[in-house]
Design a protein around this nucleic acid. Structure first.
Lengths: 315, 315
DNA sequence: CTGAAAGCGCTTACAG
DNA sequence: CTGAAAGCGCTTACAG
C-alpha cells in the first residue's frame, strides 16, 4: 500500500482493485487519517480552490444566488475562498492577488473586472475567470449574465405600456446600475417620453435609502408616477414610504424593484421587479467549471441567461 | 539571493539587509513573481487559512457581522474558506472535514458545534475553534457571545416593565432561538405572568413568515398585546401586517425583533430589538486568532460580549 | 545577515 | 493494477 495507491483510491484517478480499495479504506478509518489537500494542491495540476468575489453579503441582492453557488461548489469538492469587494474596483485587485497566491483554479466574480492591472494579471494565466451578472463587451475569459442596458430598455417599454408618464429613476453609484439607467433613458426618450427625473443612492441600494429618496421625489413638481429602483429592498422601503404619505401603490405611484428576491413576492403590495435568473447563472457557472476540469473547451465567451420582468402589484 | 532570503523578505520573518530586501523586491517586480501560499501552507507551521462557518448568507441576521469579520481576516492576510451549514447539525460535519483537509488554522462558527463526531475530531487537534453568537457550557475551545437565556429573561423583564400582559413568542426551529424562548418563559412565569402563547417558524426567521404568523396570532382570543420574534425581518413583516389589519404599533400591538440590523432603525415605526454586539464578537475573535498566532495563550474559554435591548417605537 | 539542504505530504509519469 | 521515485514551491533549522 504505497502513498500512490492511497492517492488513487482517494481521488478515484485510476482503477484500483476492489480488495485494495477496501484495505486502504479500512486503514484510513482505523488511523483517522485525513487527506491533506494543501499538499494535493501543490503536487497536482489543480488546486481545487475557487475564488468567489462578491460586492458584499449584507444587503446584497446576490445573496440568494451566491449562497446557492457556494453550496454547489462545496458539494462538488471545491474549497471556496470568499472575497468582498464592496463593489469598488480598487478593492478588487488585492483579492485577485490573494486568489493568485493560492493558485485558484477559477475566479468567479459578481460583476466585472475593470482594473487594467487585474485584467492583464489574469489574462496571461490559465485560470478560468467568470464574470457574472452582466455581459461586458470584452470579458477576460467568460461572462455569464444579462444585459443591463436591455433590462433598462425593457423597463422603459413596460412603463410605457402600463401608461406611466413620469418615471423617476433611482440609480446606485456603482458600475452596473448606470447601464440600466442608460438603457431606460435611451429607450424611453426614443419612444417620445420626456427625460425621466433622477436621483442617486449609495451602493448597495438599500431599504434605508427609501426615506430620503422618497422625500426628494415627493417634492418634485410634477410628481413622478413611477419609481424605478435598483433593488427590491429599496422598492420595499418606497412602497412603505408612499403608504405613510397616504398614497396608494400603484394607483398614485408605481414602484419597480430589481432582483426578484423572496421579499418582492411577500411584500404588501407585492413588488413588480426584474428576475435575472440568478440560479441559472450559478448553474452555467458550475457547468463551465466542470467542463474545463475535464479538459473540455468552452465554446462561447458570452452566455446570456436573459431576464424577466415580474409584473406584480406595485407597478 | 536564495529562496530562503526571498521567503524572509516576503514574510518579514527575519531581519534582512535593506539593500538585499530591495534587490529581492526589484526582482519580484521584474519577474511578476507571485508567492505560492499553498506551498507556504505545506512547508510552514500555519496554513493561514481560516474556516468561517455560517448558517447562510441569505436572510441571515449574522450577515453584517460576517461581512465585517471576513473583511478583517482578509486584511490580516488570511484566506477565508466559507461554508454554509443551513443551521443544521448534520451539514456541519462535512464542512469541518473540508476545513481539516485544508489544515485550517482556525474554525470560526456562528453557532455551536454539537455533533459528537465533530467535537472529538476537533478536540484532539491543535486547531483554534471559536463558537460565536452563543455561550455553550462546554465549548470545544473558545466561545464568544452572549447568553440566549439571559436575553429571553431580559425581554420578559422589559415586557413586564412596559406593561404588556399577553406576550406571544415566535420561535424559529433552530438550536438557539429555543434557548431565548426558555429564558423568556421562565422569567415571565416566575414573575407571575401567565404562560405566553407561542408559535414556531422555520429557520431562518424571515420577513415572509410574517403573514402566516400574524394571521395565526390575530385569531387568538384573547389577542396577544406583544409579539417577540427571532429576527428584525420577521418583526418588520409583522409591523406591516399589523398596519394592514388596521392596528397601531405599539399601541394595539407591540413587536420586538432580534439582531439590531440597520433596517430595525429604518423601519416605520422603528423596531425595538436586541443588539448582540456582533462587531465586538468579531473583534474578540480576531484578537484571539492574533494572540494564538503569536504563540500567546488565551486565558478565558468563555467571552461574554453581552447584549442590549434597543428600545424603539415598536414596543 | 545569508545560503545550502532537508522536508512538508501529496501526485504523477515511469516501470514492471 | 501497484510501487518507487521525482518533484510541486515553499519554510526552517543549521551553518557560516
Amino acid at each position: 500500500m504505497s502513498t500512490a495507491t492511497v492517492s488513487r483510491v482517494l481521488n478515484q484517478t485510476a482503477t484500483v482493485l476492489p480488495e485494495t480499495t477496501e484495505r486502504v479504506q479500512r486503514a484510513i478509518a482505523e488511523l483517522g487519517y485525513i487527506q491533506n489537500m494543501t499538499a494535493g494542491s501543490l503536487a497536482g495540476a489543480r488546486s481545487r480552490i475557487v475564488s468567489v468575489l462578491v460586492p458584499g453579503i449584507a444587503n446584497s441582492i446576490f445573496n440568494e444566488a451566491t449562497e446557492q453557488l457556494e453550496t454547489e461548489l462545496v458539494a462538488g469538492g471545491d474549497t471556496v475562498m470568499l472575497g468582498m469587494t464592496g463593489g469598488k474596483d480598487e478593492k478588487m485587485l488585492p483579492h485577485i492577488h490573494a486568489a493568485l497566491r493560492r493558485r485558484v483554479d477559477a475566479i468567479i466574480i459578481t460583476g466585472i473586472i475593470s482594473s487594467p492591472e487585474a485584467r492583464s494579471l489574469l489574462s496571461r494565466r490559465p485560470i478560468t475567470v467568470i464574470e457574472t451578472w452582466g455581459l461586458p463587451d470584452d470579458p477576460i475569459d467568460i461572462s455569464i449574465g444579462f444585459s443591463h442596458e436591455a433590462i433598462g430598455a425593457a423597463l422603459a417599454e413596460f412603463a410605457r405600456e402600463r401608461g406611466y408618464r413620469r418615471p423617476h429613476l433611482i440609480t446606485a453609484r456603482g458600475s452596473r446600475a448606470p447601464l440600466r439607467r442608460n438603457g431606460f433613458v435611451a429607450a424611453w426618450t426614443s419612444a417620445g417620453g420626456a427625460p425621466p427625473t433622477e436621483s442617486m443612492v449609495d451602493i448597495p441600494s438599500r431599504f434605508g435609502h427609501a426615506r430620503g429618496a422618497f422625500r426628494e421625489i415627493n417634492a418634485l413638481d410634477p410628481r413622478p408616477d413611477l419609481i424605478v429602483t435598483g433593488s427590491d429592498w429599496l422598492a420595499q422601503g418606497l412602497v412603505l414610504e408612499a403608504r405613510i404619505a397616504g398614497m396608494r401603490v400603484p394607483d398614485d405611484l408605481g414602484v419597480i424593484g430589481f432582483g426578484n428576491l423572496a421579499i418582492a413576492g411577500e411584500m404588501r403590495p407585492t413588488i413588480t421587479t426584474v428576475d435575472v435568473h440568478g440560479a441559472q447563472i450559478g448553474r452555467e457557472t458550475i457547468k463551465i467549471l466542470r467542463t474545463r476540469a475535464e479538459g473540455g473547451t468552452v465554446p462561447a465567451r458570452h452566455i446570456d441567461t436573459g431576464f424577466e420582468i415580474i409584473a406584480r402589484e406595485s407597478a
